[in-house]
Design a protein around this nucleic acid. Structure first.
Lengths: 372, 372
DNA sequence: GGTTAGCACTCAAGACAGTAGAGTGCTAAT
DNA sequence: ATTAGCACTCTACTGTCTTGAGTGCTAACC
């Protein structure tokens, strides 16, 4: 896996989509759909005879064989070996997803159940990240991935310094995107900066000065500001430095706070029984910066994105599909949520689920913003 | 898996330990040690001849066979089938861990590397939980589990209410054990309680009143206090209610914030190649309250605990071992860290690693407390 | 001309038998 | 007490055969 592989995680999927926009006869479409849907369920290459039986097609197996051969020539199906049934190729799935799939909205009871679960949970902390991941993987029987909604760069919003009775001091930093981080301050190295009369008033004064000066700045801007224009009060420099560090760490953290769930579902798929492949996938998930690379794709146009098998240029992902969508407020804080499963994935289930959850989170975030 | 299984997760391991305190001849001990260590490395049942060769034993294979037969009679070894080599039983591992193992301290370079990694990380947020899990699994090639250090019940420590310029209000609650939670407050339903003159001073006053009254209380106590002695100020009741909710949620959360890492290592072990077994284990880890059940065991006496195979009364765990230790300040906030691997685990590596990390965290927490 | 029945062909997977090798347990000699 | 030797056991591997699902092609059919 070369480095360049990581640079462009997704081969331009527009071209893929175009290539898939073929003119198929009605019969070919029916057969392709049947093959995909059967294979998704059974994981077994599907043969012509089985197909007519199971789907009560009004033609004979020989006819289906013809159609299959045509579809194979077009690159939509493939053959594990001469005397085996057909399996959809990545392109076949692509065509299916784009033009064949009957996409159902999530049914009412599913929607209600999901809503109910979210109503039980505080939106403030990370609990709902986990909930989203859990719902997503439970509902699609795939692995799920959720990243928190954050701006690309953390920006200073509002600062508060708190003197605690017996346990030091606390810096509470509200970021421009609404996230909150806190940081304990040691007394060592700080006490002497406060001079004789210590305590909350002095801290408030410092916080207020910094709030005025740092508003909207990112880590680098804060650093520059501290260097170019030395603060008149030493305490401000001290706290400013900590703010800069916190912002920097926040930038790093975007990557680390990714939550995943339901990996078991993937492990249980027959195609990964061997185990070796999973290793590679898990590694990629761990180095979860790969999600970062989806962000440009996702910001270009919103909605649900599907990346199938080899469309994904990360080698380890050649046998899995990703269905994901952005959520959050476009300009400001953007998060990603999605599922990862074998290319043989139940797209008609995964796509609406991802769409619904992204919309639901949007709604909740929006409402939260109104309340505040 | 009955419910009663969950009630007593660990069959009393003192009895196990006693049964293992057998008088073995020097030869038997040598053979047992060799079998365990060889099997841990190779995962292949080990025969008498291979053993003499690999360990240059000064006796013949026939002699070793005698010893093996004796050990088998004692229940320390077992036989997959008639003509296969020997495999340690759970009891065999137990004996090995208790009296045969040459336990090495972690070597200097390992210790330094670990220390270095921890020096790079803020102790405040959850990042170091992940780091611990990562180091643990990386260093032992097993799955790792880390729970945050928390008191059994969350208790009120110190409260601060912050008015934010444009984004509502923030409640910052420092728990008695030093953890910090924050919570956004909606303006709706709060504004009218503050009367005409709003803003920071009023919030400070309310916080200060509540700090006086709620100090040290757990969720239930706060609730009672609110009901029995109605607050004179309505705003206090409002905020008090939110505090109670936050404490309750905190109590629930202990269970949920467990961090695991390195499951891949377990998946890669040949004994779990089948995949089916892993499913059960992952499920147990997910329902991570099982860790809670180790707490009593661990508080009884500190240090590293080892639970081997069927000593663990949770069915799904019959083929894995747990090596774990508590960390934190005994009376106050207690956390657990440990590794999970096949019973065929490198105990001489796992045990010192767990011990070292527990000690390291103790040290860091201690130092952090001093700084504050 | 599209559809279908029929047929020869292919290949994976399962059943079966035979073999090699590692291992055991026992006994008799050292 | 130890060990060499031997008969015995069982798994894992190998090669062969069979079965069955599936294909592609062709010739007959509507």
């Amino acid at each position: 896996m070369t480095d360049s592989t990581w640079m462009t995680p997704i081969s331009n999927d527009d071209t893929q989509a175009n290539r898939a926009a073929l003119d198929l006869s009605e019969r070919q479409r029916t057969v392709l759909r049947a093959v995909v849907e059967d294979y998704v369920l059974s994981a077994v290459p599907v043969g012509s005879k089985a197909l007519v039986e199971r789907y009560r097609l009004p033609v004979s197996s020989a006819t289906v064989r013809m159609a299959m051969a045509e579809l194979e020539a077009l690159g939509l199906l493939s053959h594990p070996h001469t005397s085996a049934g057909r399996v959809p190729s990545d392109l076949g799935y692509r065509y299916y997803v784009e033009t064949l799939m009957r996409e159902a909205e999530l049914n009412r009871s599913d929607r209600l159940m999901i809503r109910h679960q979210f109503s039980q949970v505080q939106l403030t902390n990370n609990e709902w990240l986990r909930l989203t991941a859990s719902v997503l993987s439970g509902s699609t029987h795939s692995a799920s991935i959720v990243t928190p909604a954050r701006s690309r760069r953390a920006r200073f919003g509002h600062l508060q310094l708190v003197e605690l009775a017996d346990r030091g001091r606390l810096l509470v930093l509200v970021l421009a995107d609404g996230n909150v981080v806190q940081r304990r301050l040691d007394r060592t190295g700080m006490d002497h900066l406060l001079g004789d009369e210590q305590g909350q008033p002095q801290l408030d004064a410092a916080a207020s000065r910094l709030n005025g000066r740092l508003s909207g700045m990112d880590a680098r801007a804060v650093r520059r500001r501290l260097q170019r224009a030395p603060q008149t009060e030493e305490i401000d420099t001290f706290v400013g430095e900590i703010v800069a560090q916190a912002l920097e760490e926040e930038d790093r953290l975007v990557v680390e706070e990714v939550v995943t769930d339901g990996l078991v579902h993937v492990l249980e798929q027959p195609e990964f029984a061997g185990g070796g492949k999973v290793r590679a996938i898990l590694d990629v998930l761990q180095r979860s910066d790969f999600l970062q690379q989806l962000v440009p794709l996702v910001t270009r146009r919103g909605g649900v994105h599907v990346i199938i098998g080899r469309e994904n240029s990360i080698d380890a992902m050649h046998e899995v599909s990703l269905v994901f969508a952005p959520y959050g407020t476009p300009g400001r804080a953007l998060g990603l949520l999605g599922v990862l499963g074998p290319t043989r994935m139940a797209y008609p289930r995964a796509i609406p689920t991802v769409r619904y959850l992204a919309a639901l989170l949007d709604e909740l975030i929006d409402q939260d913003a109104k309340d505040a």
